[in-house]
Design a protein around this nucleic acid. Structure first.
Lengths: 326, 326
DNA sequence: TCAGGTCGTTTAATCGTGTAAATAGATAAC
DNA sequence: GTTATCTATTTACACGATTAAACGACCTGA
């Protein structure tokens, strides 16, 4: 039971009777060697259970084959789905993923970026606060999730179209008086969702009240009060988490859903389909978001001079039990 | 705007007028240099914005300062809380965390371990399926989460005590006829939760029916049928996710909670406290689990010859609205 | 005075790869 | 038959850090 050092490229070379350079060429698919040597080297490498030392490769090439994935938090119903997709996709490209949660504070985001840099990520997929200040020059390439970001590639769902879809569905169901729990408007996605709704609703639906709320499952007193005034037949929410908070208040107040009031969410997070919740919502393709962002990032790692690209993914209406015709 | 190479230890050495070895000693806190030189080197490093090249360090030392965190899935209410804690703790120790989801299949777990090895993690915190086969010799140290694992350090909640707590609370509330949705018994935590309950219930509570279910929020037909037979005053569930599925079935069947039947969960996942759900449950300290496991792992990385250690964390009863006195 | 000890610093080797440049061997050109 | 051209392979160095060993300056005690 000796000190089993894991085999190096030199061990492979020695046993195969070639030089280490040849082995390197083979293992990097550089097509520089004859088929016989190629096969021989691969066989020997396989037999020895050789696996490349990433640290050495990183040192030489300056690339670590690691990307970062910065999300506001992991304890949320939506972000882990994105993280999962990023990871899967990155793995397919031969990259590992450092998932890291920023706590949704722009200040902490900047620290997180430095942390990632310290650990040598080649780039990152990030859901950033709009106030985030991009370092200049950028430490590593990033792809912005969920919103355009000046100077970065981005991938996001069509929040504006989603807002319109909500309004149109509300109209189709006969709702004329709607209350809105919108997110704070400094967040691009919250802004666009609201704007889409308002534009499509104009002249056809009255926005009886509106409260800006945090994207968490607890509502501020004004929101609770507004709901309890019973002035509307539908409550349109900036996302599913907020919608669930609204459902809670309604239940507490003895109002039935969708009998007394319909509730509309946004995101289609995993739990929206649970029978206890059963929320009508606008679905954004979370996994696609992650995969596309990862592809974009990897493409950019290959060529930093590409023009920045903004990918917009379509959203869809998912009708469940929390809404009904008036 | 030239090619700004980030400064190396040699740059620092040159500018500070010392050798690179000295810089290395200073930056690794090895207390080998005079205070003046120490201060000088630190100042120069700071001014240059020097940051150590991890790849080079890893190559030389064989340690990457990265740990893995293997979890069955990220899209679950409980695991991300663990991941978050692991990450935070690892960061405090100067380690980055590669969170990776194994899809809960023992086969995939083995692949995941190889993936982590390929990316050079120094060790991992892992929630493993009991059938997982540990490589021999182990590729890197691991700490088992949620259950003891032969040959590994472990950290887990006291599932058995939790089971007893459930039974005792049921008894205190006057319940005598209980149905149980238990998990499959090959999973240690599911087994112990059930065993604790059964032991404490013996002679005082009748287990009217029991169905083994997957740990997901959908129930198999037998379970639905059992619930609809209305033979019990309480349903004890292997975890909160299953409890929520039970709540759904009860709602569908027109039974009120806790009026007609009480429901008891296990885990105290984040959403158990939402007013819509409001689940009485046994709380396991998820964040502590993650932190303790990380500490254990880091300790082991420092000294591989330590005897393996099993840490058991206490659970607590969290009483909410889904249970009541009969 | 000089052998021996301390202490702070430097020298130099090393980790495992990637890759530019050198080389050898075969083929083609004339 | 000599030279030029190409191709497959090897040589040799660099990447940026760590660290054992060497070193020189200073101190100490007989």
């Amino acid at each position: 039971m000796g000190k089993e050092k894991s085999p190096t490229i030199k061990d492979v070379a020695r046993i195969a009777g070639v030089s280490s350079a040849t082995v390197s060429y083979v293992l990097n698919d550089l097509n520089k060697v004859t088929p016989e040597v190629d096969a021989l080297v691969r066989r020997v490498a396989e037999e020895l259970g050789y696996s490349r030392n990433n640290a050495a490769r990183a040192l030489k090439t300056g690339r670590n084959n690691i990307i970062g994935c910065i999300l506001p938090t992991l304890t949320s119903p939506v972000f882990p789905e994105i993280a999962q997709a990023v990871q899967l996709r990155a793995e397919a490209h031969g990259y590992a993923t450092l998932v890291i949660d920023s706590g949704n504070a722009p200040m902490r985001e900047e620290r997180v970026v430095r942390t990632l840099a310290k650990h040598g990520v080649d780039g990152a997929v990030a859901l950033l606060h709009p106030k985030f200040k991009l370092a200049n020059p950028p430490i590593f390439p990033m792809v912005s999730l969920d919103a355009k970001f000046p100077g970065l590639d981005s991938v996001h769902a069509d929040h504006y179209a989603g807002g319109r879809l909500m309004a149109e569905h509300a109209i189709a169901l006969g709702h004329r008086r709607v209350g809105m729990l919108s997110g704070f408007q400094d967040l691009t996605s919250s802004y666009e969702r609201r704007q889409g709704f308002v534009d499509a609703a104009a002249g056809r639906v009255e926005l009886v009240w509106e409260v800006n709320v945090q994207l968490v499952p607890q509502l501020p007193p004004e929101a609770v009060a507004a709901i309890r005034r019973r002035e509307v037949t539908m409550i349109a929410c900036v996302n599913d988490l907020v919608a669930i908070a609204a459902l809670s208040v309604l239940k507490d107040s003895g109002m039935s859903v969708p009998g007394d009031v319909s509730v509309f969410g946004f995101d289609d997070m995993q739990w929206a389909s649970w029978p206890l919740i059963d929320l009508t919502t606008i679905r954004q393709p979370l996994a696609d978001l992650g995969s596309r962002a990862t592809d974009l990032l990897i493409a950019r790692l290959g060529n930093r001079d590409l023009p920045t690209e903004d990918v917009v993914l379509p959203v869809t209406l998912v009708e469940r039990g929390s809404t009904s015709r008036i």
